[in-house]
Amino acid sequence: MTDDSLSIGISAPGRKPVFNGPALFWFVICALPVVAVCLPLGLFLATGFWHVDNGTMVPALSLDNYVNFFSNPTYVSVLLQTLTLAAEVAAGNMLIGFGIAYFIWRCPPVWHFPLLVLGTIPLLMSYIIKLYALRSILGNNGFLNQALVAVGLFDKASDLFLFNQTSILITMGIIYLPFSILPIYLTLERIPLSLLHASADLGGSAWQTFRHVTLPCSLPGTVVGGMFSLILALGDFVTPQMVGGVKGFTFGRLIWSQFGMAFDWPFGAAMATILLVLSIGVIVIAGAIIKRTEAI
């Protein structure tokens, strides 16, 4: 690197710098996302159009992987079931997340930060450890069953809480809840208190204030909170597998299975592209909803 490259637009008279500072600065700023994000992403999009021949990937473009996917009822139904599951998780987390965020917001301000930290501290823990922990709580010999038997609610340990649809919902809900609480709390906090006071001054009941002021004002955060849970649940290939028993087969696992022995990276990449498009779709829809509420 020469001195020129470091100078910030100052150069010897009559000589043009090869690089001037801002140019280099912008080059680095632009190169980083190109190299770290766009290239890998582009490569994986491209791989989706390739195929495997005799153990090696052939970069010949075709739509075969996509045709295979959409013409196979098993794959399409796995995708639809995963979408339903993710939507259920998102709906649950929007409700519960709103409840918790609202509670924190209504507490005395001095409590806000500690409570928020409490609500999000699970994010600091490894995801796999949380899964193992939840499984040991929900299992047949687990804490929940032991407690229920101990207090006499159950005669004997039950298989109700693990390796079924319920356990997938409970576990995904718990794991992704912090992602819903945070954005909802942030929008609630931004509602000016004067608005709430004005509503009360004009004779609005607590319910009316909530219904016509708090709820609409916090809607963008609530939508984002639900969106986070939805997208995270959509791509999760570990949680359903680990807590859902034979019902824990999801789209993420289908993608995962194309690597390793199957060695069908192109098909895996094509399905990952479908997941990516769906996720972008969710973001676009969420964006549209937010825009509409803000217009009102």
């Binding site: 499984r135 299992g139 010999n141 034979v246 824990g248």
Partner: peptide
Amino acid sequence: LSYYAGFDDGISIFAQND
């Protein structure tokens, strides 16, 4: 009951369930 993935996964399910 479940399809397990990995040595430890199998062990933990076995030990925590019937």
